[in-house]
Design a protein around this nucleic acid. Sequence first.
DNA 1: TGTTTTTATCTCAACGTTGAGATTATCAAC
DNA 2: GTTGATAATCTCAACGTTGAGATAAAAACA
Lengths: 166, 166
Amino acid sequence: MSDVVDVIVGQWAKERPDVTDDLWPVQMFARIQRLARVVDKSAKDTAAAHGVEHGEFDVLTTLQRSGPPYTLTAGALLKASMVTSGAITNRIDKMEAKGLVERVREGTDRRTVKIRLTDHGHDVTRAVFADHLANYARLLATVDRDLVERTAEDLREVLLALGDTA
Amino acid sequence: MSDVVDVIVGQWAKERPDVTDDLWPVQMFARIQRLARVVDKSAKDTAAAHGVEHGEFDVLTTLQRSGPPYTLTAGALLKASMVTSGAITNRIDKMEAKGLVERVREGTDRRTVKIRLTDHGHDVTRAVFADHLANYARLLATVDRDLVERTAEDLREVLLALGDTA
DNA sequence: TGTTTTTATCTCAACGTTGAGATTATCAAC
DNA sequence: GTTGATAATCTCAACGTTGAGATAAAAACA
């Protein structure tokens, strides 16, 4: 059976037969892009239902899963989120105004700013994350679990081959 | 070997052992999200080198692969790009100013606006697409091709199971 | 024919991100 | 110690997208 990407590749093969041999990366990347769109939009809606932006949810979960004392520097959050410094500053500003996190300036290096999850931030994170996982499960309700796990393992190999290690 | 997502899942398992059983979708979705970020950023740079925005490149390729007469309605482009109507209007405005496409109002239905690739648009599309494919190949230079094709097929099954058909 | 509903596109303010530059602090070398 | 380089964060204008509403045409129905 054919999906949307098969159709796209078929169109290219017809219109640009000269590039047919170079389309194999498209088969993977286009599907990744498509799935990312669908999942991101869904995740955005889940977070929005709790009054939290997509990027803010990213910061919340990064802080919570980091464990006690639920504190990370702005720089660490920036790398984890794969966004620019301006985006992190903006996110922290708004999250601080909402009482989700607080900026802590302490320690020897006074350039660094530590971001700490507040008690309220913890509560919100737990609530949103629960909905988030339920949403993921709902999205995959019609998908064979073995397929999902197999795909996840293939994707890990791809990421490793690309040098995406911790 | 562990990738970044393995680390993330490990953190969750430690900090929130109660949700461990619900993390299997994260293994796939988080990797899709991560790969999408990397690939999108790279594709953006490729397009930018030709003075074209990421979204504009999307419109250009959609028009070219549609074949003669290289004309699609705004609505068709909107669906293909998975963005809102405002985004398409904005893209077409700028692309028309650059001479890449032209709006054609003809036919029986005067609500519809047809977007046609100009000769200049064709030239630019060919150039950017060539670089785009070369960039894809470069990205995957260190990745086993069988793995890529296997992953692409798994992803197709996932998309089909999610109902993503043409 | 006249009215209502639906469809296609455009408008525009609000929003988050980018990316270059500014600021301030630390580290390294002399 | 002073200088220069590096590092961490913040500032801010520009940019593309969103999403609700407006506009206008076509289709459906009375």
